[in-house]
Design a protein around this nucleic acid. Structure first.
Lengths: 227, 227
DNA sequence: GAATACTGTCATCGAATTGTAACAATCATT
DNA sequence: AATGATTGTTACAATTCGATGACAGTATTC
């Protein structure tokens, strides 16, 4: 999956750099513009997944940029989040005259902005909340519900066991080494022994009962979920 | 089929015109009024299919207009959607004293307002009843009326408790992490501890009594409303 | 303005979970 | 069959996690 791109339009150089750095750290591809017309041009050229737009800009202000973006069929689907200093302006920013998708009042925490960006992206990408459900040989796993059924009977797994099972299922058919599993289930920062995986595999198998045979041991390599 | 008519009562001329334009574009017959008493008069004369009512109005405010409309047998069946600036007011708007059918918190996008207008119209015309009522295992929750009954007995929940319960019900069957719940119930700007959720879950369970077992704890992950 | 209700934070407690180590069983190779 | 390497099994102590009750700061109500 490719990174999502964000265009940041903000005249304060310091804030701009700070935002760019933070969004990059959060896994986005960040582009920047320091005034309105440049922002508009970049938006048209790059078609970012989202635009964060300061209201107060030299030259062409945020209002106008937003209106322009929303008028052009090419860019009207790009969600816009406005940054504004005064909360009184808020009423007309969103939806009505402007068509912005959300707004954040300055001063804001990056955390809040990030949460809103993610929410808007989730909304606008129209991702139908797909119910990730796997069912095979008497084993049903519902990732959304965090539930496992063995022959229709609910089985209580701990958080780690569930993540391990989910990870194996997600990569079914491929062997995963203990180190790979540690990285994706326990996280890169985990410093423990690789044998920890064995213990959890064992607990998993025990709880799964008969369908546990879907988890295969590949001697000398690791484990694999049967395809 | 004839166009459905909407009466818009809003004192900000710009917003009013914009709403009118957008509703016309969406295929409605839009009427406008710039203050409360004019709105009331027009509602009585034209009997629109729905009224969109700003809460803050010069002269007669939205509260009073709504109450008037709901008192008069001639107009009491006309659904009302309130526009309000502050989300704190929301709790008392719907169902309670006022009898409004829905509300939209400013700032909103026109898209959102349109969705709600359509939902309310669908509901009130009785064609496709919307599900705003949950009833299971001795627990009845009416999302519209902001009412909770436990074994037929009305139970008073605080605003936060209700929102939390509603959010869990809305996403029944899926696990929600504390962070997710914080974002959707408390809002993005909330910066407090995730443990706060625990406390409110506890209070909720306490008030719900026996049906509280519908709220399941998923250890290491979050909470889930039983499907 | 006093009383009441609501909210968020914190400390504590018990129980569930987890990583590790030690030992047993199994496997591949010779 | 013997050997060493690898994996399975078990027990256990340390840690984590969630429930709970108390409390203080606000907001709301009368």
């Amino acid at each position: 999956m490719n990174k999502q791109s964000i265009l940041l339009v903000e005249d304060d150089e310091d804030i701009l750099q700070l935002l760019a750095f933070n969004f990059e750290s959060a896994g986005f591809d960040a582009h920047t513009a320091e005034d309105g017309s440049l922002g508009l041009a970049k938006a048209r050229r790059h078609k970012p997944d989202l635009v964060v737009l300061d209201l107060m800009l030299p030259g062409m202000n945020g209002f106008d940029v937003c209106k322009e973006l929303k008028r052009d069929p090419e860019t009207m689907d790009i969600p816009v989040i406005m940054l504004t200093a005064r909360s009184e302006e808020v009423d007309r920013i969103v939806g009505l005259e402007l068509g912005a998708d959300d707004y954040v009042v300055k001063p804001f925490s990056f955390r809040e902005l990030l949460l809103r960006v993610r929410a808007v992206l989730r909304r606008s990408s129209g991702t139908a909340p797909e119910r990730t459900r796997i069912e095979r040989d008497g084993l049903e796993v519902d990732l959304e519900a965090h539930k496992v059924l063995v022959h229709g009977q609910e089985t209580a797994l701990t958080a780690t066991e569930f993540k391990l099972l989910a990870e194996l299922i997600r990569t079914a058919g491929r062997v995963r080494t203990r180190d790979q599993l540690l990285a994706s289930v326990w996280g890169y920062e985990f410093e423990g022994y690789a044998r920890t995986v064995d213990t959890h595999i064992r607990r998993l198998r025990q709880k799964l009962g008969e369908p546990a045979r879907l988890i295969e041991t590949v001697r000398g390599v690791g484990y694999r979920f049967k395809e």
